[in-house]
């Protein structure tokens, strides 16, 4: 039924979440759970890989807003990488690039964590 899934991956100390499918009001809780799991594991350097993310609704965007503050307070960050153009457009319309590091390549996002 749910056409959304989150895959967990590590690159050094960075936790990468691979989003797949459609992130909307129904599936937002799955991403919430994934980020909560990262927090519980003390993994606050998080990269969201959106290469396979086909759609995001406003409720989906709300998940990032809900956790970014806490993650940054713990010295980490949520960076977003490899979004498809259509999905990037949704982020961009709302001004998310002003609030989040949104980059084309996952390696760049990892690099930013390493430099920091």
């Amino acid at each position: 039924m749910s056409n959304f899934s989150v895959g967990f991956r590590n690159s050094g100390t960075v936790q990468i979440l691979d989003l797949k499918g459609e992130l909307d009001a129904h599936t937002a809780s799955e991403l919430e759970a994934a980020i909560q799991k990262c927090q519980a594991d003390n993994q606050v350097q998080i990269i969201i890989n959106g290469a396979n993310l086909l759609y995001i609704s406003s409720a989906g965007l709300g998940v990032f807003m809900a956790y970014i503050e806490e993650v940054r307070e713990c010295g980490g960050d949520i960076k977003i990488a490899a979004l498809q153009p259509k999905v990037y457009n949704v982020f961009d319309l709302l001004g998310f690039p002003m609030l989040f590091d949104i980059v084309d390549l996952e390696e760049d996002a990892v690099g930013k964590f390493v430099v920091a």
């Binding site: 807003m65 319309l93 709302l94 001004g95 002003m98 609030l99």
Partner: peptide, 19 residues
Amino acid sequence: IRTRGLGLGLDRGSLFQQS
């Protein structure tokens, strides 16, 4: 007409106004 601007509530400080 695509001007720059953050959504209401995304920033609660001065960034919103600047955007």
